[in-house]
Amino acid sequence: METIFKRRSVRKYTDTAVSDEQLKQIIKAGMAAPSAKNSQEWIFIVLRDPAIYQTFSEVHVNAFAMKTAQAAILVCADLSKEKDPGQGWWIQDCAAAMENMLLEATDLGLGSLWLGVHPKEDRIACMKDVCSLPEGVEPLGIMALGEPTKSREAIDRYLEDQVFLNTYGNTWGK
Rank of each mutant, 00 (worst) to 15 (best):
C126S: 01
E58T: 07
D84G: 01
N170P: 02
A65M: 13
A69Q: 08
T14D: 06
D122Q: 06
Q92F: 12
I26G: 04
Q40E: 14
A97W: 03
T55A: 12
Q162T: 14
A97S: 13
A32M: 14
S112H: 06
Q54C: 02
E104L: 08
I45K: 02
A77I: 00
T68N: 09
W90G: 00
L133E: 01
M66V: 06
R48I: 03
Q25T: 13
G116D: 00
A33V: 05
V130K: 06
I155Q: 12
R152F: 12
D15F: 05
S112V: 04
L159R: 14
Y168M: 12
E2C: 02
K12C: 11
A17D: 14
A144G: 09
A69W: 08
C126A: 05
S151N: 10
G173S: 13
G141W: 05
C76M: 03
E2L: 09
G173T: 09
L165W: 13
L113F: 04
K128V: 00
G86S: 06
A17M: 13
I124M: 04
R157D: 04
S35Q: 05
P139N: 04
P134Y: 00
G141H: 04
E82W: 00
S35Y: 04
P34I: 10
L140V: 04
I142S: 01
M98I: 13
D161I: 03
G146E: 07
V130E: 00
A65D: 09
A51H: 06
D129R: 02
G136M: 02
W114S: 05
G30Q: 07
S132C: 06
A105E: 08
P134D: 01
D20V: 10
T3V: 15
A95I: 07
I27D: 08
T149H: 06
P139M: 02
K150L: 12
G136C: 00
I52R: 07
H118V: 01
T3C: 06
A69C: 08
V75N: 03
Q40A: 08
M143F: 06
T149L: 12
Y53W: 07
K174T: 13
I4D: 04
L159E: 15
I142M: 10
S112K: 07
L140Q: 01
T68Y: 11
F64D: 13
A96P: 03
F164D: 10
C131D: 02
D161T: 15
A36S: 15
M101Y: 08
T3M: 08
S19H: 09
Q22G: 05
E160R: 15
K128G: 00
A105G: 11
Q70V: 12
D15S: 15
K28C: 10
C126H: 00
G146C: 10
P50L: 09
G146N: 10
G109L: 14
L79K: 01
F56Y: 12
R157T: 14
V75T: 10
G111D: 06
